[in-house]
Design a binder for these strands. Structure first.
Length: 590
DNA sequence: CCGCCGATAA
Protein backbone atom coordinates (compact mmCIF):
# COMPACT_ATOMS: atom_id res chain seq x y z
CA UNK A 1 0.00 0.00 0.00
CA UNK A 2 1.39 3.35 -0.95
CA UNK A 3 1.36 6.13 1.54
CA UNK A 4 -0.67 9.12 0.44
CA UNK A 5 2.11 11.41 1.59
CA UNK A 6 4.51 10.03 -0.94
CA UNK A 7 2.36 10.87 -3.94
CA UNK A 8 3.58 14.42 -3.42
CA UNK A 9 7.14 13.36 -3.94
CA UNK A 10 7.31 13.00 -7.72
CA UNK A 11 11.03 12.42 -7.65
CA UNK A 12 10.34 8.99 -6.25
CA UNK A 13 8.13 7.84 -9.09
CA UNK A 14 10.51 7.62 -12.06
CA UNK A 15 12.88 4.71 -12.03
CA UNK A 16 16.39 5.33 -13.11
CA UNK A 17 18.69 2.59 -14.25
CA UNK A 18 21.51 2.32 -11.81
CA UNK A 19 24.16 2.98 -14.41
CA UNK A 20 27.38 4.90 -14.14
CA UNK A 21 26.53 7.00 -17.22
CA UNK A 22 23.94 8.80 -15.16
CA UNK A 23 26.35 9.54 -12.38
CA UNK A 24 29.10 10.75 -14.66
CA UNK A 25 26.86 13.23 -16.41
CA UNK A 26 26.99 16.60 -14.69
CA UNK A 27 23.34 17.43 -15.36
CA UNK A 28 21.73 14.09 -14.87
CA UNK A 29 19.38 13.64 -11.92
CA UNK A 30 20.61 11.52 -9.05
CA UNK A 31 19.17 8.06 -8.48
CA UNK A 32 15.89 8.33 -6.57
CA UNK A 33 17.23 6.57 -3.50
CA UNK A 34 19.58 9.47 -2.85
CA UNK A 35 16.71 11.93 -2.66
CA UNK A 36 14.55 9.58 -0.66
CA UNK A 37 17.37 9.01 1.80
CA UNK A 38 17.76 12.76 2.20
CA UNK A 39 14.08 13.16 2.97
CA UNK A 40 14.26 10.24 5.38
CA UNK A 41 17.16 11.89 7.12
CA UNK A 42 15.18 15.11 7.49
CA UNK A 43 12.30 13.21 9.06
CA UNK A 44 14.68 11.48 11.47
CA UNK A 45 16.38 14.72 12.46
CA UNK A 46 12.94 16.12 13.29
CA UNK A 47 12.20 13.03 15.37
CA UNK A 48 9.50 11.82 12.96
CA UNK A 49 10.50 8.16 13.11
CA UNK A 50 7.23 6.73 11.81
CA UNK A 51 7.21 9.01 8.77
CA UNK A 52 10.80 8.04 8.03
CA UNK A 53 9.89 4.36 8.34
CA UNK A 54 6.92 4.69 5.97
CA UNK A 55 9.13 6.38 3.41
CA UNK A 56 11.79 3.71 3.91
CA UNK A 57 9.23 0.95 3.36
CA UNK A 58 8.09 2.65 0.15
CA UNK A 59 11.52 2.92 -1.40
CA UNK A 60 11.79 0.69 -4.45
CA UNK A 61 15.54 0.04 -4.31
CA UNK A 62 16.85 0.25 -0.82
CA UNK A 63 20.61 0.39 -0.92
CA UNK A 64 23.00 -0.02 1.99
CA UNK A 65 22.97 3.75 2.52
CA UNK A 66 19.21 3.83 3.11
CA UNK A 67 19.40 0.87 5.49
CA UNK A 68 22.25 2.47 7.44
CA UNK A 69 20.39 5.78 7.65
CA UNK A 70 17.35 3.97 9.05
CA UNK A 71 19.47 2.10 11.61
CA UNK A 72 21.31 5.20 12.85
CA UNK A 73 18.05 7.18 12.84
CA UNK A 74 16.36 4.65 15.12
CA UNK A 75 19.29 4.87 17.53
CA UNK A 76 19.33 8.66 17.63
CA UNK A 77 15.57 8.64 18.25
CA UNK A 78 16.08 6.40 21.29
CA UNK A 79 14.81 3.26 19.63
CA UNK A 80 17.87 1.00 19.58
CA UNK A 81 15.75 -2.18 19.59
CA UNK A 82 14.20 -1.15 16.27
CA UNK A 83 17.66 -0.32 14.98
CA UNK A 84 18.80 -3.85 15.79
CA UNK A 85 15.68 -5.38 14.16
CA UNK A 86 16.32 -3.33 11.03
CA UNK A 87 19.91 -4.54 10.96
CA UNK A 88 18.74 -8.15 11.12
CA UNK A 89 16.20 -7.50 8.36
CA UNK A 90 18.82 -6.15 5.98
CA UNK A 91 21.33 -8.98 6.39
CA UNK A 92 19.74 -11.54 4.00
CA UNK A 93 19.48 -9.07 1.10
CA UNK A 94 21.98 -6.25 1.47
CA UNK A 95 25.62 -6.43 2.36
CA UNK A 96 26.33 -4.08 5.31
CA UNK A 97 29.19 -1.61 5.10
CA UNK A 98 31.37 0.21 7.63
CA UNK A 99 28.65 2.85 8.17
CA UNK A 100 26.18 0.09 9.05
CA UNK A 101 28.48 -1.42 11.65
CA UNK A 102 29.34 1.82 13.42
CA UNK A 103 25.61 2.57 13.67
CA UNK A 104 24.57 -0.86 14.83
CA UNK A 105 27.33 -0.96 17.45
CA UNK A 106 26.01 2.30 18.82
CA UNK A 107 22.55 0.69 18.99
CA UNK A 108 24.02 -2.22 21.00
CA UNK A 109 25.59 0.31 23.36
CA UNK A 110 22.21 2.04 23.81
CA UNK A 111 20.52 -1.30 24.51
CA UNK A 112 23.33 -2.17 26.92
CA UNK A 113 23.41 -5.57 25.23
CA UNK A 114 26.77 -7.30 25.28
CA UNK A 115 25.49 -10.43 23.45
CA UNK A 116 24.23 -8.39 20.49
CA UNK A 117 27.33 -6.25 20.56
CA UNK A 118 29.46 -9.37 20.36
CA UNK A 119 27.43 -10.62 17.37
CA UNK A 120 27.91 -7.27 15.65
CA UNK A 121 31.62 -7.48 16.44
CA UNK A 122 31.86 -10.94 14.89
CA UNK A 123 29.95 -9.88 11.76
CA UNK A 124 32.11 -6.77 11.36
CA UNK A 125 35.16 -8.99 11.57
CA UNK A 126 33.78 -11.43 8.99
CA UNK A 127 32.95 -8.61 6.58
CA UNK A 128 36.39 -7.12 7.09
CA UNK A 129 35.40 -3.75 8.55
CA UNK A 130 37.42 -3.74 11.74
CA UNK A 131 40.01 -1.67 9.90
CA UNK A 132 37.56 1.24 9.72
CA UNK A 133 38.38 3.71 12.46
CA UNK A 134 34.67 4.47 12.88
CA UNK A 135 33.81 0.81 13.43
CA UNK A 136 36.82 0.31 15.70
CA UNK A 137 35.94 3.34 17.84
CA UNK A 138 32.29 2.31 18.10
CA UNK A 139 33.49 -1.14 19.18
CA UNK A 140 35.61 0.31 22.01
CA UNK A 141 32.64 2.40 23.10
CA UNK A 142 30.24 -0.55 22.97
CA UNK A 143 32.50 -2.72 25.16
CA UNK A 144 33.09 0.17 27.59
CA UNK A 145 29.34 0.66 28.00
CA UNK A 146 28.20 -2.98 28.05
CA UNK A 147 30.87 -4.64 30.24
CA UNK A 148 31.33 -4.32 33.96
CA UNK A 149 35.04 -3.77 33.51
CA UNK A 150 37.17 -2.01 30.94
CA UNK A 151 39.20 -5.07 29.87
CA UNK A 152 37.34 -5.76 26.61
CA UNK A 153 37.26 -2.07 25.70
CA UNK A 154 40.98 -1.87 26.42
CA UNK A 155 41.62 -4.93 24.22
CA UNK A 156 39.61 -3.41 21.36
CA UNK A 157 41.53 -0.15 21.83
CA UNK A 158 44.91 -1.92 21.69
CA UNK A 159 43.91 -3.57 18.39
CA UNK A 160 43.65 -0.17 16.72
CA UNK A 161 46.90 0.56 14.92
CA UNK A 162 46.30 4.17 13.92
CA UNK A 163 44.21 5.92 16.55
CA UNK A 164 42.44 9.23 16.11
CA UNK A 165 41.23 11.73 18.68
CA UNK A 166 37.84 10.02 18.97
CA UNK A 167 39.59 6.75 19.88
CA UNK A 168 41.31 8.44 22.81
CA UNK A 169 38.19 10.30 23.94
CA UNK A 170 36.18 7.08 23.85
CA UNK A 171 38.59 5.22 26.10
CA UNK A 172 38.99 8.11 28.56
CA UNK A 173 35.20 8.46 28.72
CA UNK A 174 34.83 4.71 29.23
CA UNK A 175 36.95 4.76 32.39
CA UNK A 176 35.48 8.02 33.64
CA UNK A 177 31.85 7.00 33.22
CA UNK A 178 32.54 3.89 35.29
CA UNK A 179 33.77 6.15 38.07
CA UNK A 180 37.44 5.28 37.49
CA UNK A 181 38.87 8.79 37.28
CA UNK A 182 42.43 7.56 37.75
CA UNK A 183 42.07 5.17 34.83
CA UNK A 184 40.70 7.98 32.68
CA UNK A 185 43.51 10.35 33.61
CA UNK A 186 46.13 7.66 32.93
CA UNK A 187 44.84 7.32 29.37
CA UNK A 188 44.71 11.11 29.04
CA UNK A 189 48.38 11.37 30.09
CA UNK A 190 49.38 8.66 27.64
CA UNK A 191 47.48 10.53 24.95
CA UNK A 192 49.50 13.68 25.66
CA UNK A 193 52.74 11.71 25.65
CA UNK A 194 51.91 10.29 22.24
CA UNK A 195 51.34 13.83 20.95
CA UNK A 196 47.70 13.25 20.15
CA UNK A 197 45.64 16.32 19.42
CA UNK A 198 44.05 18.04 22.41
CA UNK A 199 40.48 19.05 21.66
CA UNK A 200 37.40 20.26 23.55
CA UNK A 201 36.02 16.71 23.68
CA UNK A 202 38.92 14.98 25.37
CA UNK A 203 39.63 17.97 27.63
CA UNK A 204 36.02 17.97 28.90
CA UNK A 205 36.11 14.32 29.78
CA UNK A 206 39.52 14.64 31.41
CA UNK A 207 38.12 17.41 33.61
CA UNK A 208 35.31 15.07 34.59
CA UNK A 209 37.88 12.45 35.52
CA UNK A 210 39.54 15.04 37.79
CA UNK A 211 36.17 15.83 39.33
CA UNK A 212 35.62 12.14 40.11
CA UNK A 213 38.97 11.93 41.88
CA UNK A 214 38.37 15.18 43.72
CA UNK A 215 41.94 16.26 43.24
CA UNK A 216 42.44 20.00 43.53
CA UNK A 217 45.92 19.99 42.01
CA UNK A 218 44.93 17.94 38.95
CA UNK A 219 41.88 20.14 38.57
CA UNK A 220 43.87 23.36 38.61
CA UNK A 221 46.49 21.89 36.27
CA UNK A 222 43.87 20.98 33.72
CA UNK A 223 42.27 24.40 34.05
CA UNK A 224 45.56 26.01 33.02
CA UNK A 225 45.81 23.53 30.16
CA UNK A 226 42.38 24.72 29.06
CA UNK A 227 43.54 28.34 29.08
CA UNK A 228 46.82 27.52 27.33
CA UNK A 229 44.98 25.89 24.45
CA UNK A 230 42.50 28.71 24.11
CA UNK A 231 39.46 26.66 25.12
CA UNK A 232 38.27 29.32 27.58
CA UNK A 233 35.59 30.39 25.12
CA UNK A 234 34.28 26.85 24.64
CA UNK A 235 31.12 26.63 26.74
CA UNK A 236 30.99 22.84 27.32
CA UNK A 237 34.64 22.84 28.37
CA UNK A 238 34.14 25.77 30.73
CA UNK A 239 30.99 24.17 32.16
CA UNK A 240 33.07 21.13 33.08
CA UNK A 241 35.71 23.38 34.66
CA UNK A 242 33.00 25.20 36.60
CA UNK A 243 31.54 21.93 37.86
CA UNK A 244 35.02 20.81 38.91
CA UNK A 245 35.44 24.03 40.93
CA UNK A 246 32.06 23.55 42.59
CA UNK A 247 32.76 19.97 43.62
CA UNK A 248 36.49 19.89 44.31
CA UNK A 249 37.91 23.33 44.95
CA UNK A 250 35.31 25.58 46.47
CA UNK A 251 32.37 27.78 45.72
CA UNK A 252 34.34 31.04 45.99
CA UNK A 253 36.66 29.93 43.20
CA UNK A 254 33.64 28.66 41.28
CA UNK A 255 32.13 32.15 41.60
CA UNK A 256 35.27 33.68 40.13
CA UNK A 257 35.28 31.15 37.31
CA UNK A 258 31.62 31.91 36.59
CA UNK A 259 32.29 35.68 36.52
CA UNK A 260 35.20 35.24 34.14
CA UNK A 261 33.24 33.20 31.63
CA UNK A 262 32.72 35.22 28.46
CA UNK A 263 29.71 33.23 27.38
CA UNK A 264 27.23 31.23 29.43
CA UNK A 265 24.40 28.89 28.58
CA UNK A 266 21.63 27.31 30.65
CA UNK A 267 23.98 24.47 31.69
CA UNK A 268 26.40 27.04 33.14
CA UNK A 269 23.62 28.37 35.34
CA UNK A 270 22.40 24.88 36.23
CA UNK A 271 25.91 23.91 37.31
CA UNK A 272 26.09 26.92 39.63
CA UNK A 273 22.62 26.32 41.08
CA UNK A 274 23.46 22.68 41.70
CA UNK A 275 26.72 23.75 43.31
CA UNK A 276 24.95 26.02 45.80
CA UNK A 277 21.82 23.93 46.33
CA UNK A 278 23.02 22.36 49.61
CA UNK A 279 25.43 24.84 51.15
CA UNK A 280 23.60 28.07 50.32
CA UNK A 281 20.05 27.44 49.06
CA UNK A 282 19.23 31.16 49.12
CA UNK A 283 22.10 31.87 46.77
CA UNK A 284 20.79 29.07 44.52
CA UNK A 285 17.42 30.85 44.47
CA UNK A 286 19.05 34.19 43.65
CA UNK A 287 20.92 32.57 40.76
CA UNK A 288 17.62 31.16 39.53
CA UNK A 289 15.92 34.55 39.58
CA UNK A 290 18.82 36.24 37.79
CA UNK A 291 18.82 33.66 35.00
CA UNK A 292 15.08 34.24 34.66
CA UNK A 293 15.50 38.01 34.51
CA UNK A 294 18.01 37.54 31.70
CA UNK A 295 15.32 35.82 29.68
CA UNK A 296 16.96 32.39 29.74
CA UNK A 297 14.65 29.38 29.65
CA UNK A 298 15.00 27.07 32.66
CA UNK A 299 14.91 23.35 31.86
CA UNK A 300 14.24 20.22 33.90
CA UNK A 301 17.77 20.23 35.32
CA UNK A 302 17.29 23.82 36.54
CA UNK A 303 14.09 22.85 38.30
CA UNK A 304 15.45 19.69 39.95
CA UNK A 305 18.23 21.75 41.58
CA UNK A 306 16.17 24.77 42.50
CA UNK A 307 13.35 22.65 43.93
CA UNK A 308 15.96 20.77 45.97
CA UNK A 309 17.24 24.12 47.24
CA UNK A 310 13.71 25.06 48.33
CA UNK A 311 13.38 21.66 50.04
CA UNK A 312 16.50 22.42 52.07
CA UNK A 313 14.98 25.60 53.50
CA UNK A 314 11.42 24.25 53.50
CA UNK A 315 9.63 27.32 52.19
CA UNK A 316 6.41 25.94 50.81
CA UNK A 317 5.22 29.17 49.19
CA UNK A 318 8.24 29.40 46.90
CA UNK A 319 7.99 25.68 46.22
CA UNK A 320 4.41 26.07 45.03
CA UNK A 321 5.45 28.91 42.73
CA UNK A 322 8.15 26.73 41.24
CA UNK A 323 5.70 23.91 40.69
CA UNK A 324 3.54 26.38 38.79
CA UNK A 325 6.48 27.22 36.54
CA UNK A 326 7.17 23.53 36.03
CA UNK A 327 3.59 22.75 35.00
CA UNK A 328 3.42 25.81 32.74
CA UNK A 329 6.49 24.61 30.87
CA UNK A 330 5.20 21.05 30.63
CA UNK A 331 8.10 19.67 32.66
CA UNK A 332 6.08 17.88 35.34
CA UNK A 333 6.46 14.61 33.46
CA UNK A 334 10.23 14.62 33.93
CA UNK A 335 11.23 11.95 36.44
CA UNK A 336 14.00 14.03 38.04
CA UNK A 337 11.72 17.04 38.51
CA UNK A 338 8.91 14.91 39.97
CA UNK A 339 11.37 13.26 42.38
CA UNK A 340 12.58 16.67 43.56
CA UNK A 341 8.97 17.79 44.10
CA UNK A 342 8.16 14.67 46.17
CA UNK A 343 11.11 15.46 48.41
CA UNK A 344 10.27 19.16 48.59
CA UNK A 345 6.65 18.63 49.65
CA UNK A 346 7.68 16.03 52.21
CA UNK A 347 10.23 18.38 53.74
CA UNK A 348 7.65 21.18 53.80
CA UNK A 349 5.32 18.87 55.70
CA UNK A 350 2.76 18.30 52.94
CA UNK A 351 3.20 14.56 52.48
CA UNK A 352 -0.20 14.32 50.77
CA UNK A 353 1.14 16.39 47.87
CA UNK A 354 4.20 14.13 47.67
CA UNK A 355 1.79 11.20 47.41
CA UNK A 356 -0.24 12.78 44.63
CA UNK A 357 2.85 13.48 42.54
CA UNK A 358 4.24 10.01 43.19
CA UNK A 359 1.02 8.33 42.13
CA UNK A 360 0.63 10.46 39.01
CA UNK A 361 4.07 9.53 37.74
CA UNK A 362 4.03 7.51 34.55
CA UNK A 363 7.53 6.21 35.02
CA UNK A 364 9.24 5.85 38.37
CA UNK A 365 12.87 5.12 39.07
CA UNK A 366 14.60 4.00 42.23
CA UNK A 367 15.02 7.64 43.30
CA UNK A 368 11.23 8.19 43.10
CA UNK A 369 10.55 5.27 45.43
CA UNK A 370 13.34 6.31 47.78
CA UNK A 371 12.12 9.92 48.02
CA UNK A 372 8.60 8.75 48.82
CA UNK A 373 9.85 6.27 51.43
CA UNK A 374 12.07 8.87 53.11
CA UNK A 375 9.05 11.22 53.13
CA UNK A 376 6.85 8.64 54.85
CA UNK A 377 9.66 7.85 57.26
CA UNK A 378 10.11 11.45 58.36
CA UNK A 379 6.37 11.73 58.89
CA UNK A 380 6.37 8.76 61.25
CA UNK A 381 4.68 6.50 58.73
CA UNK A 382 7.24 3.72 58.70
CA UNK A 383 4.81 0.92 57.85
CA UNK A 384 3.85 2.67 54.65
CA UNK A 385 7.50 3.17 53.77
CA UNK A 386 8.18 -0.52 54.25
CA UNK A 387 5.11 -1.44 52.21
CA UNK A 388 6.36 0.85 49.45
CA UNK A 389 9.69 -0.94 49.41
CA UNK A 390 7.99 -4.27 48.77
CA UNK A 391 5.82 -2.69 46.10
CA UNK A 392 8.93 -1.30 44.45
CA UNK A 393 10.61 -4.70 44.29
CA UNK A 394 7.41 -6.24 42.89
CA UNK A 395 7.26 -3.58 40.18
CA UNK A 396 10.66 -4.73 38.99
CA UNK A 397 12.82 -1.83 40.18
CA UNK A 398 16.13 -3.07 41.50
CA UNK A 399 16.92 -1.62 44.93
CA UNK A 400 20.21 0.20 45.45
CA UNK A 401 22.20 1.00 48.58
CA UNK A 402 20.35 4.27 49.25
CA UNK A 403 16.90 2.69 49.22
CA UNK A 404 18.13 0.15 51.78
CA UNK A 405 19.18 3.05 54.01
CA UNK A 406 15.61 4.36 53.68
CA UNK A 407 13.89 1.05 54.43
CA UNK A 408 16.21 0.28 57.37
CA UNK A 409 15.51 3.70 58.86
CA UNK A 410 11.79 3.16 58.39
CA UNK A 411 11.98 -0.23 60.14
CA UNK A 412 14.04 1.30 62.91
CA UNK A 413 11.57 4.07 63.67
CA UNK A 414 8.63 1.69 63.48
CA UNK A 415 10.14 -1.02 65.62
CA UNK A 416 10.11 -3.60 62.84
CA UNK A 417 13.43 -5.00 64.01
CA UNK A 418 13.35 -8.52 62.60
CA UNK A 419 11.88 -7.32 59.33
CA UNK A 420 14.72 -4.81 59.11
CA UNK A 421 17.29 -7.51 59.74
CA UNK A 422 15.75 -9.57 56.94
CA UNK A 423 16.17 -6.61 54.56
CA UNK A 424 19.77 -6.23 55.68
CA UNK A 425 20.47 -9.90 54.91
CA UNK A 426 18.66 -9.67 51.57
CA UNK A 427 20.72 -6.63 50.64
CA UNK A 428 23.95 -8.53 51.14
CA UNK A 429 22.94 -11.98 49.89
CA UNK A 430 20.27 -11.41 47.24
CA UNK A 431 21.42 -8.09 45.83
CA UNK A 432 25.14 -8.32 46.43
CA UNK A 433 25.40 -4.84 47.94
CA UNK A 434 28.31 -4.55 50.35
CA UNK A 435 27.26 -2.70 53.51
CA UNK A 436 29.12 0.54 54.19
CA UNK A 437 29.43 2.60 57.36
CA UNK A 438 26.03 4.23 56.82
CA UNK A 439 24.25 0.88 56.46
CA UNK A 440 25.98 -0.53 59.55
CA UNK A 441 24.92 2.63 61.37
CA UNK A 442 21.31 1.96 60.33
CA UNK A 443 21.36 -1.65 61.54
CA UNK A 444 23.05 -0.68 64.82
CA UNK A 445 20.35 1.95 65.26
CA UNK A 446 17.66 -0.62 64.41
CA UNK A 447 18.89 -3.04 67.07
CA UNK A 448 19.84 -0.33 69.55
CA UNK A 449 16.47 1.40 69.56
CA UNK A 450 14.80 -1.90 70.33
CA UNK A 451 17.18 -2.42 73.23
CA UNK A 452 19.07 -5.27 71.57
CA UNK A 453 22.44 -3.72 72.33
CA UNK A 454 24.28 -6.99 72.73
CA UNK A 455 23.49 -7.88 69.10
CA UNK A 456 24.36 -4.38 68.00
CA UNK A 457 27.73 -4.66 69.72
CA UNK A 458 28.40 -8.05 68.12
CA UNK A 459 27.57 -6.62 64.72
CA UNK A 460 30.07 -3.80 65.23
CA UNK A 461 32.70 -6.31 66.32
CA UNK A 462 32.07 -8.36 63.18
CA UNK A 463 32.45 -5.41 60.81
CA UNK A 464 35.19 -5.96 58.24
CA UNK A 465 36.19 -2.29 58.37
CA UNK A 466 36.88 0.10 61.26
CA UNK A 467 33.52 1.44 62.44
CA UNK A 468 33.38 5.21 62.11
CA UNK A 469 31.57 7.90 64.10
CA UNK A 470 28.22 7.24 62.48
CA UNK A 471 28.25 3.63 63.69
CA UNK A 472 29.43 4.46 67.21
CA UNK A 473 27.10 7.43 67.25
CA UNK A 474 24.13 5.13 66.66
CA UNK A 475 25.40 2.78 69.36
CA UNK A 476 25.96 5.58 71.87
CA UNK A 477 22.54 6.96 71.07
CA UNK A 478 21.04 3.60 72.03
CA UNK A 479 23.11 3.44 75.22
CA UNK A 480 21.82 6.90 76.05
CA UNK A 481 18.21 5.99 75.35
CA UNK A 482 18.45 2.88 77.51
CA UNK A 483 20.71 4.52 80.12
CA UNK A 484 23.43 1.88 79.81
CA UNK A 485 26.56 3.51 81.12
CA UNK A 486 28.82 0.42 81.13
CA UNK A 487 28.19 -0.38 77.48
CA UNK A 488 28.51 3.30 76.68
CA UNK A 489 31.88 3.31 78.38
CA UNK A 490 33.07 0.35 76.33
CA UNK A 491 31.94 2.12 73.19
CA UNK A 492 33.59 5.34 74.31
CA UNK A 493 36.90 3.58 74.89
CA UNK A 494 36.80 2.25 71.35
CA UNK A 495 35.67 5.34 69.56
CA UNK A 496 38.03 7.90 68.15
CA UNK A 497 35.77 10.83 68.82
CA UNK A 498 36.28 13.77 66.55
CA UNK A 499 32.65 14.73 66.43
CA UNK A 500 31.23 16.79 69.26
CA UNK A 501 27.97 14.84 69.04
CA UNK A 502 29.73 11.65 70.11
CA UNK A 503 30.96 13.27 73.34
CA UNK A 504 27.61 14.88 73.90
CA UNK A 505 25.86 11.50 73.72
CA UNK A 506 28.38 10.07 76.15
CA UNK A 507 28.02 12.93 78.60
CA UNK A 508 24.26 12.56 78.71
CA UNK A 509 24.63 8.86 79.53
CA UNK A 510 26.73 9.86 82.53
CA UNK A 511 24.22 12.52 83.46
CA UNK A 512 21.37 10.04 83.26
CA UNK A 513 23.18 7.75 85.66
CA UNK A 514 24.20 10.52 88.02
CA UNK A 515 27.91 9.96 87.35
CA UNK A 516 28.71 13.61 87.64
CA UNK A 517 32.48 13.28 87.82
CA UNK A 518 32.63 11.61 84.40
CA UNK A 519 30.02 14.00 83.15
CA UNK A 520 32.19 16.98 84.09
CA UNK A 521 35.27 15.36 82.52
CA UNK A 522 33.54 14.90 79.17
CA UNK A 523 32.04 18.38 79.22
CA UNK A 524 35.50 19.80 79.79
CA UNK A 525 36.82 17.97 76.72
CA UNK A 526 33.83 19.27 74.77
CA UNK A 527 34.54 22.86 75.74
CA UNK A 528 38.19 22.40 74.83
CA UNK A 529 37.21 21.19 71.36
CA UNK A 530 35.54 24.49 70.74
CA UNK A 531 33.19 22.75 68.34
CA UNK A 532 29.60 22.97 69.40
CA UNK A 533 26.81 20.70 68.41
CA UNK A 534 24.51 22.80 66.32
CA UNK A 535 21.43 23.78 68.30
CA UNK A 536 18.22 22.11 67.25
CA UNK A 537 16.14 24.66 65.42
CA UNK A 538 12.45 24.62 64.64
CA UNK A 539 10.55 26.84 62.32
CA UNK A 540 7.11 27.51 61.06
CA UNK A 541 6.03 29.27 57.91
CA UNK A 542 3.28 31.83 58.42
CA UNK A 543 2.02 33.85 55.49
CA UNK A 544 5.26 33.54 53.45
CA UNK A 545 7.36 34.43 56.46
CA UNK A 546 9.55 31.94 58.22
CA UNK A 547 9.68 32.14 62.00
CA UNK A 548 12.61 30.16 63.28
CA UNK A 549 13.48 29.54 66.91
CA UNK A 550 15.68 27.53 69.25
CA UNK A 551 15.04 26.40 72.81
CA UNK A 552 15.05 29.35 75.19
CA UNK A 553 14.47 31.88 72.42
CA UNK A 554 12.65 35.14 73.01
CA UNK A 555 10.20 35.43 70.18
CA UNK A 556 9.50 39.14 70.48
CA UNK A 557 6.00 40.44 71.05
CA UNK A 558 4.28 37.10 70.46
CA UNK A 559 6.15 35.24 73.16
CA UNK A 560 3.27 35.24 75.61
CA UNK A 561 0.92 33.64 73.12
CA UNK A 562 3.53 30.98 72.31
CA UNK A 563 3.92 30.03 75.96
CA UNK A 564 0.15 30.02 76.36
CA UNK A 565 -0.10 27.50 73.53
CA UNK A 566 2.76 25.51 75.01
CA UNK A 567 0.97 25.36 78.35
CA UNK A 568 -2.15 24.02 76.64
CA UNK A 569 -0.08 21.35 74.90
CA UNK A 570 1.41 20.38 78.24
CA UNK A 571 -2.08 19.87 79.65
CA UNK A 572 -3.01 17.70 76.67
CA UNK A 573 0.10 15.57 77.19
CA UNK A 574 -0.74 15.08 80.86
CA UNK A 575 -4.29 14.28 79.99
CA UNK A 576 -3.13 11.59 77.58
CA UNK A 577 -1.08 10.18 80.49
CA UNK A 578 2.11 10.41 78.46
CA UNK A 579 5.27 10.40 80.54
CA UNK A 580 7.83 12.58 78.78
CA UNK A 581 11.59 11.97 79.07
CA UNK A 582 12.69 15.35 80.37
CA UNK A 583 16.32 14.26 80.58
CA UNK A 584 16.77 14.37 76.83
CA UNK A 585 15.47 17.93 76.73
CA UNK A 586 18.26 19.10 78.98
CA UNK A 587 20.87 18.14 76.40
CA UNK A 588 19.71 20.81 74.06
CA UNK A 589 19.44 23.45 76.72
CA UNK A 590 23.10 23.84 77.55
C1' DC B 1 22.74 10.27 0.48
C1' DC B 2 24.50 6.69 5.99
C1' DG B 3 28.92 6.37 10.93
C1' DC B 4 32.37 6.80 16.30
C1' DC B 5 33.73 10.36 21.34
C1' DG B 6 32.43 15.22 25.49
C1' DA B 7 29.39 18.91 29.55
C1' DT B 8 24.46 19.68 33.92
C1' DA B 9 20.27 16.91 38.18
C1' DA B 10 18.09 12.98 41.52
Amino acid sequence: MRSRKLVHLPCLTPRFPNSSTHLSSAFSPKPPSVLATNVMKSYLEAGLVEEARTLFDEMPDRDVVAWSAMISGYTSCNRPTDAWATFRDMLPDVRPNDFTFSSVLKACKSMNSLPRGAVAHALALRHGFLGSIYVANALVDMYAACCRDMDSARAAFDEIGVKNSVTWTTLIAGYTHMGDGHGGLDVFRRMLLEDAELNPFNVSIAIRACTWIGSQSFGKQIHSTVLKHGFESNIPVMNSVLDMYCRCIGLNDADRCFDEMVERDIITWNTMIAGYEKSDPYKALRLYSSLMSQGLAPNCFTFTSVVAAVANIAILGVGEQLRGGIVRRGLEGDVGVANALIDMYAKCGIIASSCRIFEAMGRKNVVSWTSMMVGYGSHGRGEEAVALFNEMVESGVRPDRIVFVAVLNACSHTGLVDEGLRYFKAMVNAYGIAPDQEIYGCVVDLLGRAGRLQEAYELIEAMPVMPDESVWGAFLGACKAHKLAELGNIAASRVRPSVAGTYLALSSIYAANGEWGDFARIRKILRGMGSKKEAGRSWVEVKNKICSFVAGDKLGSNIDRVYEALHMLGLHIKHAQFNPDLQCLEDDLD
